[in-house]
């Protein structure tokens, strides 16, 4: 770990406002926001509750709180976006052909959209079940 470990300086960043650079920034910023969202999610679901996990009624009560509902929806949107972009960059590192990358992009977009759509549907359905 010497000085060669340093990465792009802000100047270098500014000089490289290409598409891949901004995709990486989305990845990094979404990761930083996920620290709070994933932290809250894990502590609230797994550490606060006596016995470790919420039972059915406790889950409904929890998700029916509008602030928690909003945080959970944000969490699923950012978590899925971050991870799909991440998988895309892993695939990109394997030097795929342009055709393979195109297919991978579509698979990731569809999988990500389905996961986000389903996650939001689940949160709304639970809120309605809670009455």
């Amino acid at each position: 770990m010497d000085s060669t470990m340093s990465r792009r300086s802000p100047e270098q960043m500014a000089a490289r406002r290409d598409r891949s650079g901004s995709v990486w920034l989305v990845q990094a910023f979404s990761g930083l926001i996920l620290v709070a969202l994933l932290g809250i999610h894990m502590i609230a679901h797994h550490y606060i509750v006596e016995g470790g996990l919420r039972d059915y009624q406790q889950v409904l009560d929890y998700v029916s709180n509008p602030i928690i509902f909003t945080l959970e929806v944000l969490f699923v949107i950012l978590g899925v976006t971050h991870s799909m972009l991440g998988v895309r960059s892993i695939i990109g590192d394997m030097r795929p052909s342009a055709g393979t990358l195109r297919v991978a992009n579509w698979v990731l977009i569809i999988a990500g959209a389905l996961a986000i759509g389903y996650g939001i549907y689940l949160a709304v359905a639970l809120q309605q079940l809670a009455g």
Binding site: R7, R8, W24, A28, S89
Partner: peptide, 12 residues
């Protein structure tokens, strides 16, 4: 840390 680069960095 020459190997740890943003995934899209050309130097990676």
């Amino acid at each position: 840390m020459p190997d740890i680069q943003p995934t899209t960095d050309k130097a990676r």
